[in-house]
Design a protein around this nucleic acid. Structure first.
Lengths: 261, 261
DNA sequence: AAGTGTGAAGTGCTTCACAGCA
DNA sequence: TGCTGTGAAGCACTTCACACTT
């Protein structure tokens, strides 16, 4: 098809396509790197350059970008500022997203003060906790309010994204409050699986799981350095990014017969 | 094949299989939930029960577990304590993993105090920073040392996992130091793509990307509620977990002709 | 000549459905 | 009978290769 690149009505004739979820996450990555390139004064980038910096396969990058339209110039590359603009639009960053953070304990406090958010279009707009010692204080100029106030405050401030950084046992209750308040997208740091209605999108950041996956790899490497009865063979390569889907030999202390079954 | 379940020599006759990376992450999740079930006194669980709590498809769960061996009992389910033990072994949690954390600023300070780590076999063993105001202080009883000391300290304490929570520009340098010190698994919170040798495993937790993906969904939902010229149709469902691979209609303000090309 | 956009092939994860064991 | 373990089918993402544009 190859549609002529055209100015975007921003919210005018809304059309719809389809983007693989995996691509959406990478688009966000491209956006950040493009921002850095723009600051350095770059005017265009090729898929190969951008792929190099982001650790993504160039073909995959081009395909990702093709999902949002044809904004590249053949023989040249992509115009940085233009692509930046398109990515921001697709990722919904032209509307400011008000973020509410529930749980300002250890981790939550750090998140509340994390400048990487507000600086990039995600102002933390409301803070909540149940601890009487925390309710009433200010963090980064934001008042910490009681969890009971979630419905009213979220509605009043138009919160669109909720972050949960409470202890595990409190998370589901908080989640229910957020959903009840109309929040449809939630970032969950608590170590529990939240139950939510279909229309609510939950993303989870699970530090314990991350470490355990790494521990698995430590064990795997340990075997790789002491190849005893190891069989499996995936001599891949790449430099730690790429996120090519892989499988890993498992250090197994039991069971037998390896072939399929 | 169906191998008779047998006691594990723990490190004896080491064998190797293959586990999809996606499964490894879920195994860690099962492990945590099983721990909770064990505390509640449960002796067995069926794949359906465990699947319900973890938000995973029962068949997928069984397949995940089958990768580590046949530890279930047909007609009954899985013995909680036994399965727990197997998961810990596979995930390398029977050897304690010493963790080093670099960057004890905003986020790093919270991570250093995060009890979810040490409690589950990941004692934070070393802290590093470059800020003279931080070097020398203690956090949770751990001395913050200068980044220059990474090689010696990591070697001395047998650090196997490194966490990077520095500002973006410092991350690559810190990463190089860790790798040089023999650390082969890194959890990166800095908003940069680390360049590492093939043998180093990097996992990235990117808060900005998480929020941007959610922002994308906010925009998507906005359209769903105002179905104007929307075309795409994925009337899926599920409750926010499941992690079934999906695609999403894109709110597009430009370009035309939708069919392929 | 250079680099994008993309059909088609490749690969791996997910889900189904059922044989088989307790 | 109930539930696990798994072959096979389904599906989505990744990668290749090249037509096409500038």
């Amino acid at each position: 098809m190859t549609v002529p690149p055209q100015a975007d009505p921003d919210d005018g004739a809304v059309r719809s396509r389809t983007i693989p979820e995996a691509s959406v996450a990478r688009l966000a990555l491209y956006l950040r790197v493009l921002g850095e390139l723009a600051e350095q004064g770059a005017e265009t980038v090729s898929s190969e350059e951008l792929a190099g910096v982001t650790g993504v396969n160039p073909a995959k990058l081009r395909k990702d970008l093709s999902y949002i339209g044809s904004y590249g110039i053949r023989g040249v590359g992509y115009e940085v500022s233009s692509l930046l603009h398109q990515l921001e639009r697709v990722l919904g960053l032209n509307h400011r997203q008000a973020v509410a953070l529930v749980g300002v304990g250890n981790l939550g406090h750090a998140l509340a003060g994390y400048t990487g958010f507000g600086g990039r279009g995600f102002p933390v707009t409301a803070l909540f906790d149940v601890d009487p010692d925390l309710v009433g204080i200010h963090i980064n100029g934001i008042l910490v309010e009681h969890v009971d106030a979630i419905p009213s405050v979220c509605a009043a401030r138009g919160v669109t994204i909720g972050m949960i950084a409470t202890p595990g046992p409190a998370a589901q209750g908080v989640c229910d409050l957020l959903v009840e308040s109309g929040v449809r997208c939630i970032l969950n740091f608590a170590p529990v699986v939240l139950q939510v209605p279909d229309e609510v999108e939950v993303r989870k950041v699970d530090l314990a799981v991350e470490l355990q996956v790494l521990a698995f790899h430590v064990a795997r490497r340990h075997v790789a350095e002491h190849p005893q009865a190891v069989a499996g063979g995936n001599g891949h390569g790449r430099n730690g990014h790429g996120s090519a889907v892989r499988t890993f030999p498992l250090v197994d202390g039991a069971s037998a017969s390896e072939g399929r079954a």
